[in-house]
Design a binder for these strands. Structure first.
Lengths: 278, 278
DNA sequence: CGTGCCAGGTGCCAT
DNA sequence: ATGGCACTTGGCACG
């Protein structure tokens, strides 16, 4: 059997199962009414309630409730799980150092405890990342601007690594910052820092161009770009590895002034076909 | 019984249990060998492996593996779970719109399926947030600087809301940006944007001061602050609601040059004694 | 709904 | 370890 489960065990029975599961390196789920105390980078406290505790063999601990994607409390990988019965009740404590953090789960009742052998995520391939966007643009640099010549990716500077560095048809240095989604002010500032760094390097101020490449940009970010003489080129978010300029942004000046912010989603999700059988 | 579990059910049995659990609004865990396909803001694919699928009544879906705190695949709250048996195999599909996203989990084998009634997180109180830091500083403004007078929090500007706005003993406007932990370049840029916004408002450039308040700052951020004539005040992260200046930062010039980056953790969690009561 | 920002962010990879 | 940054970031609060 690959999954062992005990229902409404005594706290001591639960402890036995827990220790066995620790031994086997299983992933463990405990469901029951409990309180949760956390102290570390911050501190929090949870009143009694019925929750799901997940303990991973890598030291991760997760306390999940009814709702929300994120656990209400947790402990990162690398922590050490300890279990004990105090006052006749199961207590699971997950501790780590640097930073010093403690998660304490005290069970009033244990409804169910399961242990299962879970396999690690071996091959997860994600497409649509910023790296994919970069590769697509390296294949077709003209999407950024006709005549743009890429020279380096992740080019190191005083202010950090530049996503894509190159030169335009006039030989001017161009700093390109890539974002896979609509960007706000922080991205504009980031680009500005890189441009300033290159300007310091080259010693020739005002000759360095900065281009923000993203699906779209907020108003504030657009204004920020304008203030610093930076440019914006709209590309659709990379879906299958290919990219496309969303609209013909006539980008020759230092600031774009068109308003390409509607995301033509397409969205032909017509899968209303019967997947019933219920 | 508050938790129903079936072991190694047929796929059709699993489907029945699933539908009942959906009906009851239970939190559901399914453990088995499966493949996972995701398509939406990005796209990903997972080869067959033994994983734990969690379905929440609020529409959240989580695929957890052996390791890591974050699920290897997921669907945010608000999605709709659909289950069906195709080709004799259980398939769980979680769909949401805006953005259009689909998570597809196909089980080769279902080892275990559990459903439990979990209560929502009612009262979670976290201390040590940035808001706590702000309140502590409002109580003792002199921690920022002797004579500093707070005037507003979350003061709106052209560039966004300022954490803490006030005036110094000379009547000069002061923009304060708070961070609960060690900060990098982005925080410096953020402060710079706010200072520039206030300078535009006041019309009197160079008269506006900007102070970054955080436990510590990286070298690059420090340099950025210096470039823009911004200041830094070190405070220990708020632990129990109180704050303390980490070291006597003689901050009268525009840039501090001391190096306060050691975090005296303290951490006196000595509760090995019998903590009886309830 | 979008905009902006904090978060116990997490995770990845570089020095 | 620290630093810098992307992330299907998630979550909240506000206009």
């Amino acid at each position: 059997m690959t999954a062992t489960t005990v229902h409404q065990p005594t706290h001591r029975e639960a402890l036995w199962e827990l220790e066995d599961a620790f031994e086997r390196g299983d992933l463990i789920t405990i469901f029951g009414r409990c309180t949760v105390e956390y102290d570390g980078r911050a501190a929090s406290s949870l009143d009694p309630g019925r929750r799901l505790l997940i303990l991973k063999p890598d030291g991760t601990a997760l306390v999940h409730t009814d709702e929300n994607q994120k656990p209400v409390n947790w402990q990162p990988p690398g922590s050490e799980h300890h279990a004990a019965v105090r006052d006749g009740r199961l207590r699971v404590r997950s501790v780590r150092s640097s930073p010093d953090e403690t998660l304490d789960v005290r069970f009033e009742t244990v409804e169910q405890l399961s242990a299962m052998a879970v396999s690690g995520r071996r091959d997860l391939s994600v497409t649509g990342s910023e790296a994919d966007l970069r590769n697509a643009l390296l294949d077709r640099p003209a999407l950024i601007e006709p005549g743009f010549e890429p020279l380096a990716t992740e080019r190191p500077t005083d202010a950090g690594p530049i996503d894509l560095f190159g030169r335009d048809s006039d030989g001017r240095p161009v700093v390109v910052e890539l974002k896979r989604r609509r960007v706000g002010p922080s991205a504009a500032s980031q680009l500005q820092r890189y441009v300033a760094a290159i300007e310091r390097e080259e010693g020739d101020a005002a000759a360095v161009r900065g281009i923000l490449v993203a699906p779209s940009v907020t108003d504030r970010a657009r204004r920020l770009l304008a203030e610093h003489g930076l440019e914006f080129v709209a590309v659709e978010p990379p879906s299958d590895g290919s990219v496309a300029v969303s609209t013909a942004t006539d980008n020759d000046a230092d600031v774009v002034d068109d308003d390409t912010d509607d995301d033509t989603a397409a969205s032909s999700t017509a899968e209303s076909a019967g997947e019933g059988s219920n």
